[in-house]
Amino acid sequence: MGGPAASAGSLPPDLFDTTTLVSLAATLVMLGAGYAASRKFLPANAKNSTRVLFVWHAFDALIHLILEASFLYHCFFSWIPTSSVSAEDLASNRFYMPKPSPFLGQPDRIYGPQAGDIQGHPLAKLWMVYARADRRWAGPDLGVISLELLTVFIAGPMAIWICYEMAQRRSRVNVLMLIVATGELYGGFMTFCPEWLVLNDNLDCSNFMYKWVYIVFFNTLWVWLPLYAMYVAISEISDAFAVRDAVTKGKKSN
Protein backbone atom coordinates (compact mmCIF):
# COMPACT_ATOMS: atom_id res chain seq x y z
CA MET A 1 0.00 0.00 0.00
CA GLY A 2 1.23 3.41 -0.82
CA GLY A 3 -0.56 6.69 -1.27
CA PRO A 4 0.63 10.26 -1.21
CA ALA A 5 1.66 10.15 2.45
CA ALA A 6 3.28 6.74 2.45
CA SER A 7 6.81 7.96 3.02
CA ALA A 8 8.33 7.44 6.43
CA GLY A 9 8.20 10.35 8.81
CA SER A 10 7.47 11.45 12.32
CA LEU A 11 4.33 10.12 13.96
CA PRO A 12 1.34 12.48 13.94
CA PRO A 13 0.72 14.14 17.32
CA ASP A 14 -2.91 12.96 17.42
CA LEU A 15 -2.07 9.27 16.89
CA PHE A 16 -3.25 8.31 20.39
CA ASP A 17 -5.53 11.18 21.31
CA THR A 18 -8.69 10.72 23.41
CA THR A 19 -10.98 10.24 20.40
CA THR A 20 -8.72 7.52 19.01
CA LEU A 21 -8.58 5.64 22.30
CA VAL A 22 -12.36 5.89 22.78
CA SER A 23 -12.90 4.67 19.22
CA LEU A 24 -10.70 1.62 19.72
CA ALA A 25 -12.32 0.94 23.10
CA ALA A 26 -15.79 1.09 21.50
CA THR A 27 -14.75 -1.61 19.04
CA LEU A 28 -13.57 -3.84 21.89
CA VAL A 29 -16.84 -3.25 23.76
CA MET A 30 -18.82 -4.42 20.73
CA LEU A 31 -16.66 -7.53 20.48
CA GLY A 32 -17.22 -8.18 24.18
CA ALA A 33 -20.97 -7.71 23.71
CA GLY A 34 -20.92 -10.33 20.95
CA TYR A 35 -19.12 -12.79 23.21
CA ALA A 36 -21.51 -12.10 26.10
CA ALA A 37 -24.46 -12.72 23.77
CA SER A 38 -22.95 -16.05 22.74
CA ARG A 39 -22.70 -17.07 26.40
CA LYS A 40 -26.34 -16.17 26.93
CA PHE A 41 -27.97 -17.58 23.81
CA LEU A 42 -25.81 -20.55 22.80
CA PRO A 43 -25.77 -23.84 24.74
CA ALA A 44 -22.68 -24.51 26.84
CA ASN A 45 -21.76 -27.46 24.61
CA ALA A 46 -21.93 -25.47 21.36
CA LYS A 47 -19.15 -26.25 18.91
CA ASN A 48 -16.20 -23.87 18.87
CA SER A 49 -16.93 -22.98 15.25
CA THR A 50 -20.52 -22.11 16.14
CA ARG A 51 -19.45 -19.88 19.01
CA VAL A 52 -16.79 -18.11 16.96
CA LEU A 53 -19.22 -17.45 14.13
CA PHE A 54 -21.97 -16.31 16.52
CA VAL A 55 -19.58 -13.80 18.10
CA TRP A 56 -18.42 -12.69 14.68
CA HIS A 57 -21.92 -12.10 13.31
CA ALA A 58 -23.03 -10.32 16.49
CA PHE A 59 -19.96 -8.08 16.27
CA ASP A 60 -20.57 -7.63 12.54
CA ALA A 61 -24.18 -6.56 13.17
CA LEU A 62 -23.16 -4.02 15.83
CA ILE A 63 -20.50 -2.50 13.60
CA HIS A 64 -22.91 -2.22 10.67
CA LEU A 65 -25.97 -1.03 12.58
CA ILE A 66 -24.24 1.41 14.92
CA LEU A 67 -20.95 2.64 13.50
CA GLU A 68 -21.56 2.34 9.77
CA ALA A 69 -25.16 3.51 10.13
CA SER A 70 -23.78 6.64 11.81
CA PHE A 71 -21.51 7.17 8.80
CA LEU A 72 -24.54 7.08 6.49
CA TYR A 73 -26.45 9.41 8.81
CA HIS A 74 -23.71 12.02 8.67
CA CYS A 75 -23.34 11.64 4.91
CA PHE A 76 -27.02 12.43 4.36
CA PHE A 77 -27.92 14.73 7.25
CA SER A 78 -24.78 16.47 8.55
CA TRP A 79 -23.70 19.43 6.47
CA ILE A 80 -22.20 22.86 6.66
CA PRO A 81 -22.56 25.62 4.05
CA THR A 82 -19.58 26.03 1.77
CA SER A 83 -19.78 29.74 2.54
CA SER A 84 -18.69 28.98 6.11
CA VAL A 85 -15.21 27.85 5.04
CA SER A 86 -12.46 29.76 3.31
CA ALA A 87 -11.85 29.60 -0.42
CA GLU A 88 -8.40 28.20 0.31
CA ASP A 89 -9.90 25.29 2.27
CA LEU A 90 -12.38 24.57 -0.52
CA ALA A 91 -9.60 24.56 -3.09
CA SER A 92 -7.40 22.31 -0.96
CA ASN A 93 -7.92 18.67 0.02
CA ARG A 94 -9.15 19.50 3.52
CA PHE A 95 -12.74 18.53 2.65
CA TYR A 96 -13.71 15.37 0.77
CA MET A 97 -16.31 16.32 -1.85
CA PRO A 98 -17.50 14.30 -4.89
CA LYS A 99 -16.50 15.71 -8.26
CA PRO A 100 -17.58 16.80 -10.79
CA SER A 101 -21.21 16.49 -9.60
CA PRO A 102 -22.07 17.71 -6.08
CA PHE A 103 -23.51 15.25 -3.55
CA LEU A 104 -27.34 15.24 -3.59
CA GLY A 105 -27.18 18.07 -6.11
CA GLN A 106 -26.18 20.56 -3.39
CA PRO A 107 -23.04 22.44 -4.48
CA ASP A 108 -23.42 24.91 -1.61
CA ARG A 109 -23.13 22.21 1.09
CA ILE A 110 -20.32 20.08 2.55
CA TYR A 111 -21.69 16.74 3.77
CA GLY A 112 -20.36 13.87 5.84
CA PRO A 113 -18.57 13.16 9.12
CA GLN A 114 -16.29 16.09 8.29
CA ALA A 115 -19.30 18.37 8.79
CA GLY A 116 -20.55 16.43 11.82
CA ASP A 117 -17.10 16.73 13.37
CA ILE A 118 -17.21 20.52 13.07
CA GLN A 119 -20.67 20.44 14.68
CA GLY A 120 -19.31 18.35 17.57
CA HIS A 121 -21.07 14.99 16.96
CA PRO A 122 -19.18 12.18 18.82
CA LEU A 123 -19.61 9.45 16.19
CA ALA A 124 -18.55 11.86 13.47
CA LYS A 125 -15.35 12.43 15.41
CA LEU A 126 -14.85 8.65 15.48
CA TRP A 127 -15.07 8.49 11.69
CA MET A 128 -12.66 11.37 11.35
CA VAL A 129 -10.14 9.28 13.27
CA TYR A 130 -10.46 6.50 10.68
CA ALA A 131 -10.41 9.10 7.89
CA ARG A 132 -6.85 9.95 8.85
CA ALA A 133 -5.92 6.64 7.21
CA ASP A 134 -8.57 6.60 4.46
CA ARG A 135 -9.86 10.09 3.71
CA ARG A 136 -12.89 8.83 1.76
CA TRP A 137 -14.62 8.24 5.10
CA ALA A 138 -14.48 11.95 5.93
CA GLY A 139 -17.07 12.80 3.32
CA PRO A 140 -19.72 11.42 0.98
CA ASP A 141 -17.67 9.11 -1.22
CA LEU A 142 -20.22 7.76 -3.69
CA GLY A 143 -18.78 4.25 -3.91
CA VAL A 144 -18.50 3.87 -0.13
CA ILE A 145 -22.02 5.19 0.46
CA SER A 146 -23.47 2.84 -2.16
CA LEU A 147 -21.87 -0.15 -0.45
CA GLU A 148 -22.78 1.01 3.04
CA LEU A 149 -26.45 1.31 2.11
CA LEU A 150 -26.43 -2.41 1.33
CA THR A 151 -24.33 -3.19 4.38
CA VAL A 152 -26.45 -1.30 6.89
CA PHE A 153 -29.89 -2.20 5.55
CA ILE A 154 -29.23 -5.78 4.39
CA ALA A 155 -26.03 -7.29 5.83
CA GLY A 156 -26.54 -5.91 9.34
CA PRO A 157 -30.07 -7.28 9.82
CA MET A 158 -29.04 -10.58 8.20
CA ALA A 159 -26.17 -10.91 10.69
CA ILE A 160 -28.70 -10.63 13.53
CA TRP A 161 -30.85 -13.23 11.77
CA ILE A 162 -27.85 -15.56 11.60
CA CYS A 163 -27.28 -15.23 15.36
CA TYR A 164 -30.96 -16.01 15.97
CA GLU A 165 -30.84 -19.09 13.72
CA MET A 166 -27.69 -20.30 15.50
CA ALA A 167 -29.38 -19.88 18.88
CA GLN A 168 -32.33 -21.91 17.53
CA ARG A 169 -29.91 -24.57 16.17
CA ARG A 170 -31.35 -24.38 12.67
CA SER A 171 -29.27 -25.79 9.82
CA ARG A 172 -30.50 -23.20 7.32
CA VAL A 173 -28.16 -20.74 9.02
CA ASN A 174 -25.44 -22.10 6.73
CA VAL A 175 -27.20 -20.74 3.66
CA LEU A 176 -27.57 -17.34 5.32
CA MET A 177 -23.89 -17.31 6.28
CA LEU A 178 -22.90 -18.00 2.67
CA ILE A 179 -25.01 -15.08 1.45
CA VAL A 180 -23.62 -12.62 4.01
CA ALA A 181 -20.01 -13.81 3.62
CA THR A 182 -20.19 -13.44 -0.16
CA GLY A 183 -21.59 -9.94 0.24
CA GLU A 184 -18.89 -8.96 2.75
CA LEU A 185 -16.10 -10.17 0.48
CA TYR A 186 -17.56 -8.42 -2.55
CA GLY A 187 -18.05 -5.25 -0.55
CA GLY A 188 -14.46 -5.29 0.66
CA PHE A 189 -13.16 -5.75 -2.86
CA MET A 190 -15.30 -2.92 -4.22
CA THR A 191 -14.18 -0.68 -1.36
CA PHE A 192 -10.47 -1.05 -2.05
CA CYS A 193 -10.17 -1.99 -5.72
CA PRO A 194 -10.90 1.62 -6.81
CA GLU A 195 -8.05 2.74 -4.54
CA TRP A 196 -5.66 0.15 -5.93
CA LEU A 197 -6.41 1.41 -9.44
CA VAL A 198 -5.35 4.95 -8.48
CA LEU A 199 -2.34 3.77 -6.45
CA ASN A 200 -4.05 4.31 -3.07
CA ASP A 201 -4.49 8.02 -3.64
CA ASN A 202 -6.78 8.43 -0.61
CA LEU A 203 -4.86 6.19 1.80
CA ASP A 204 -2.21 7.29 4.30
CA CYS A 205 0.18 4.45 5.14
CA SER A 206 2.85 6.64 6.70
CA ASN A 207 2.84 4.94 10.12
CA PHE A 208 2.11 1.58 11.74
CA MET A 209 -1.27 2.58 13.20
CA TYR A 210 -2.75 3.89 9.96
CA LYS A 211 -1.41 1.13 7.72
CA TRP A 212 -1.47 -2.03 9.79
CA VAL A 213 -4.23 -1.33 12.33
CA TYR A 214 -6.77 0.92 10.57
CA ILE A 215 -6.37 -0.20 6.96
CA VAL A 216 -5.00 -3.75 7.06
CA PHE A 217 -6.20 -5.28 10.34
CA PHE A 218 -9.69 -3.78 10.59
CA ASN A 219 -10.46 -4.37 6.93
CA THR A 220 -9.04 -7.88 6.60
CA LEU A 221 -11.25 -8.97 9.50
CA TRP A 222 -14.00 -8.77 6.86
CA VAL A 223 -11.96 -11.10 4.66
CA TRP A 224 -10.71 -13.87 6.96
CA LEU A 225 -13.87 -14.26 9.05
CA PRO A 226 -16.23 -14.38 6.03
CA LEU A 227 -13.89 -16.92 4.42
CA TYR A 228 -14.04 -19.01 7.59
CA ALA A 229 -17.84 -18.69 7.64
CA MET A 230 -17.94 -19.89 4.03
CA TYR A 231 -15.68 -22.85 4.88
CA VAL A 232 -17.89 -23.93 7.79
CA ALA A 233 -21.13 -23.40 5.85
CA ILE A 234 -19.94 -25.26 2.76
CA SER A 235 -18.68 -28.14 4.92
CA GLU A 236 -22.06 -28.42 6.67
CA ILE A 237 -24.01 -28.22 3.40
CA SER A 238 -21.71 -30.77 1.75
CA ASP A 239 -22.27 -33.17 4.68
CA ALA A 240 -26.03 -32.77 4.26
CA PHE A 241 -25.77 -33.57 0.55
CA ALA A 242 -23.60 -36.59 1.35
CA VAL A 243 -26.28 -37.93 3.70
CA ARG A 244 -28.98 -37.36 1.08
CA ASP A 245 -26.88 -39.08 -1.60
CA ALA A 246 -26.31 -42.07 0.73
CA VAL A 247 -30.06 -42.35 1.40
CA THR A 248 -30.80 -42.11 -2.33
CA LYS A 249 -28.29 -44.84 -3.16
CA GLY A 250 -29.70 -47.01 -0.40
CA LYS A 251 -33.22 -46.70 -1.83
CA LYS A 252 -31.99 -47.56 -5.32
CA SER A 253 -30.11 -50.64 -4.08
CA ASN A 254 -33.26 -51.90 -2.39
Rank of each mutant, 00 (worst) to 15 (best):
A8Q: 11
V85D: 02
R132N: 08
R94P: 02
K99S: 14
V243C: 08
K252A: 15
D239P: 00
K251F: 11
V129D: 04
W224M: 13
A133H: 03
P113H: 06
L126I: 12
F16M: 12
V29R: 07
F208E: 05
T18L: 14
S171R: 14
M30P: 01
D134H: 03
E68F: 14
V198R: 15
M230D: 01
R169Y: 00
A229L: 08
R132Y: 02
Y231C: 08
T50S: 13
F103Q: 01
S101H: 10
A181V: 04
V55E: 09
P43H: 07
K40S: 12
V243M: 10
M209W: 15
Y186D: 05
T220V: 15
F41L: 14
G3W: 08
L126N: 00
Y164G: 01
D89K: 08
M209F: 15
T50I: 10
K252W: 02
T248V: 11
E184K: 03
F208W: 15
A6F: 09
S38F: 11
M190L: 11
L21F: 06
F71N: 01
Y214M: 09
S23W: 12
G105R: 00
L185Q: 02
G9K: 09
F16E: 07
F208N: 02
L203S: 11
V213Q: 05
C163D: 07
E148V: 00
F153Y: 12
D141K: 10
M128H: 02
G187T: 04
G250D: 13
E165M: 15
C205D: 12
A6L: 04
M158L: 15
I66H: 07
E165I: 06
A46L: 06
L72K: 07
M97Q: 13
F208R: 06
V216K: 10
D89E: 14
G2F: 10
S206C: 04
L147F: 12
E195T: 04
W56D: 04
L67M: 13
T27C: 11
W79T: 07
V232T: 03
A69M: 09
A37W: 08
F153V: 04
D201Q: 15
S235N: 13
R135M: 02
I234A: 12
W224K: 05
L67F: 15
T18Q: 10
F77K: 07
Y186E: 08
V144L: 11
A58H: 03
Y186M: 13
W224A: 15
E236H: 12
M230F: 06
W79R: 05
G112P: 02
P113D: 06
A159S: 15
W222Y: 14
V22P: 00
L149T: 01
W56E: 04
K211I: 02
G188H: 09
W56C: 04
